[in-house]
């Protein structure tokens, strides 16, 4: 029994109240983004945030980055300033493909909250589906996994780090200009 738990868990579970607060945080974050409230979203981030989305390596299992110049590339590799820049672009009113408005629906599920070595930092894993719909029939949905670090501060929970994993090697979409 104990052995099985060791394999399954990323770390020690957080207490139930913390787990509940984390779930509420992620749900609120998804709602704020769906509602295009980017300033509110930025306020949920720690200013030291690291926000990444790596390209999945479509290589044989025996091959890993070696001596060639081919190495991991990031679709997103952002700090707080870059995220602010992306949010500012959305708010310029000059992103033509978002007018008429683009609609997003973010669903976050399979949320697991674990303790880390640092008492106020939690390792949070989740799955998501992000549905985007615009104009007449321009619908697309992306499903992926997220690995977050959240920090408990005097000002509530803040997102310190997010790594987003989309499984597709070739992205079949006109753009991934959205917050995951």
């Amino acid at each position: 029994m104990a052995k099985k738990q060791k394999i399954a868990a990323v770390g020690k579970d957080t207490d139930m109240e913390t787990a509940y607060r984390i779930e509420r945080f992620l749900a609120a974050e998804a709602r704020v983004l769906d509602e295009e409230r980017y300033d509110d979203w930025l306020a949920m981030l720690d200013e030291s945030i690291v926000y990444k989305m790596p390209i999945p390596m479509n290589t044989y299992r025996r091959n890993r980055p070696g001596k060639s110049s081919i190495c991991e590339t990031m679709i997103y590799d952002e700090n707080f300033e870059k995220l602010k820049q992306r949010a500012a672009r959305e708010d310029t009113g000059m992103v033509w493909l978002n007018d008429p408005a683009t609609h997003h629906i973010r669903t976050v599920t399979n949320i697991e909250s674990f303790c880390t070595d640092e008492a106020s930092v939690y390792d949070v894993r989740s799955k998501f589906t992000l549905l985007r719909s615009r104009r007449d029939k321009d619908h697309i949905s992306h499903t992926g996994t997220r690995k977050d670090l959240l920090r408990d501060t005097g000002d509530g929970l803040k997102l310190v780090s997010r790594t987003v994993f989309l499984p597709e090697r070739v992205i079949v979409d006109k753009n991934l200009n959205m917050f995951f």
Partner: peptide
């Protein structure tokens, strides 16, 4: 390159439309 014309580049996304 990633931020401008990568898969989630803030310029790249406009052209596909």
């Amino acid at each position: 390159v990633g931020q401008t014309f990568g898969t989630a580049g803030i310029l790249e996304g406009d052209d596909g439309d």
